[in-house]
C-alpha cells in the first residue's frame, strides 16, 4: 500500500510539474499583458508534435531544444499579428481570440498529424527503471523532473537577476511607469509572451514522452493550469508553481482513495481556497481582481 501511495504521490508531483510549467507560462502572460491565453494548450500540443517530427532528423536532444524554440517563434508571430492590438482593451476579446486559436490549433494538429495517438520515441536509457523496489522511478521521470527544475530555476533566476526579468516584474506592477522610464513596452510584452510560449512548448515535448501524442493533449492540461494559478494566487509566480505541484499531488492521492474524483478534487481545492483565502495562497490583495 505504501508503495502505491508513494507511486501516486510521485506521479502526482510529475503531473503537477506539467501543470506548473503550463501555468507559469500562462501566469507570465496574464500578469504582464492581462490576456488569458486559452491557446496555451494548443502551443503545448504543437511543441509535442514538432518534437515528434524533428526526432528522426535531430534526435531527442535536438528536438528537446529546437521544438520549444520553434513553438515560441510561432507564438511571437501570433502575438505580433493577432494579440498585440487587443492589449489594454476589454479582457473579453483576448479570451475569445485565444479561444478561437485553440480550436484552430487542435484542428490543424489533427489535420497534419492525424487524429490517432502517435508513439513518441525516447532514448532507451531513459525508459529503464532505476530501482527494482520503486519500479515507477524510471529514468525518464527523473529526467523530466531535472528538466522542469532547471527550466523553472532558469526562469526565476532570469526574472530576478537579469535586466529583462526586472523589467517584466516591474511591468507586472505598473506598466505605465515602466513605459515612461523609456522601456519599449511592446518588445517587453512580446519577449514575455515568447518566454511563456517557450515553457508551453517545453512542457509539450516532456508530456509527449510521458503521455504519448494526441491532438487533445493540450486541452486536457489547460484547465488544471487555470486551477493552479487560482490556487497559487494571481500575480504570484511562486504561488503558481506551488499551486501546480499541490493540485498534481492532490489528484495523485485522489487516484488512490477516490479514483472517480481524480479530476474533480482539484476543483474542490480551488473552491476551498476561494472560500477561505480568496486571493489564493500567495496572491497579493488588490491585484487583478
Amino acid at each position: 500500500m505504501t508503495q502505491v501511495v508513494l507511486f501516486n504521490i510521485f506521479n502526482g508531483l510529475i503531473v503537477g510539474a506539467f501543470y506548473a510549467l503550463m501555468a507559469l507560462g500562462l501566469s507570465l502572460i496574464l500578469n504582464l499583458s492581462g490576456v488569458i491565453n486559452f491557446a496555451h494548450g494548443g502551443f503545448l500540443a504543437l511543441g509535442a508534435y514538432l518534437a515528434y517530427t524533428l526526432i528522426p532528423y535531430v534526435g531527442f536532444w535536438g528536438a528537446l531544444i529546437v521544438a520549444p524554440l520553434l513553438t515560441a517563434a510561432l507564438g511571437l508571430v501570433i502575438e505580433r499579428v493577432l494579440i498585440r492590438p487587443l492589449y489594454g482593451g476589454d479582457p473579453l476579446y483576448g479570451l475569445l481570440l485565444t479561444f478561437g486559436l485553440a480550436y484552430i490549433f487542435e484542428d490543424v494538429t489533427r489535420f497534419i498529424w492525424g487524429a490517432q495517438s502517435l508513439p513518441f520515441q525516447l532514448p532507451a536509457w531513459l525508459t529503464t527503471s532505476l530501482s527494482s523496489q520503486f519500479f515507477f522511478v524510471t529514468g525518464y521521470r527523473v529526467f523530466m523532473i531535472v528538466v522542469v527544475v532547471a527550466a523553472v530555476g532558469a526562469l526565476f533566476a532570469a526574472l530576478n537577476y537579469t535586466r529583462l526579468g526586472m523589467r517584466i516584474r516591474a511591468g507586472t506592477r505598473d506598466l505605465d511607469t515602466v513605459s515612461t522610464l523609456g522601456v519599449n513596452v511592446r518588445v517587453l510584452r512580446s519577449l514575455n509572451f515568447g518566454i511563456g510560449i517557450y515553457m508551453a512548448g517545453l512542457a509539450g515535448v516532456l508530456a509527449a514522452g510521458l503521455l504519448g501524442l494526441s491532438p487533445t493533449i493540450g486541452a486536457n492540461l489547460i484547465m488544471p493550469s487555470f486551477v493552479a494559478i487560482i490556487v497559487g494566487g494571481l500575480g504570484s509566480l511562486l504561488g503558481t508553481l506551488i499551486g501546480g505541484l499541490m493540485i498534481g499531488v492532490a489528484s495523485g492521492l485522489a487516484a488512490v482513495y477516490f479514483p472517480s474524483a481524480t479530476e474533480a478534487v482539484i476543483y474542490v481545492m480551488m473552491g476551498l481556497v476561494l472560500l477561505f483565502r480568496p486571493r489564493g495562497l500567495l496572491g497579493e490583495e488588490g491585484r487583478l481582481h
Binding site: 496574464l30 492581462g34 488569458i36 479582457p91 473579453l92 479570451l95 484547465m223 487555470f226 486551477v227 494559478i229 487560482i230 494571481l234 472517480s260 474524483a261 481524480t262 479530476e263 474533480a264 476543483y267 474542490v268 480551488m270 473552491g271 476561494l274 487583478l288 481582481h289
Partner: peptide
C-alpha cells in the same frame, strides 16, 4: 474581469468531470 472569467471556466469543469466519471 479576467479573474472572474478564469474562476468560472475552472468551476464549469467540475460538472463536466462528474458527468464524465
Amino acid at each position: 474581469g479576467v479573474y472572474f472569467a478564469m474562476v468560472t471556466i475552472a468551476f464549469g469543469q467540475v460538472f463536466y468531470f462528474l458527468a464524465f466519471r
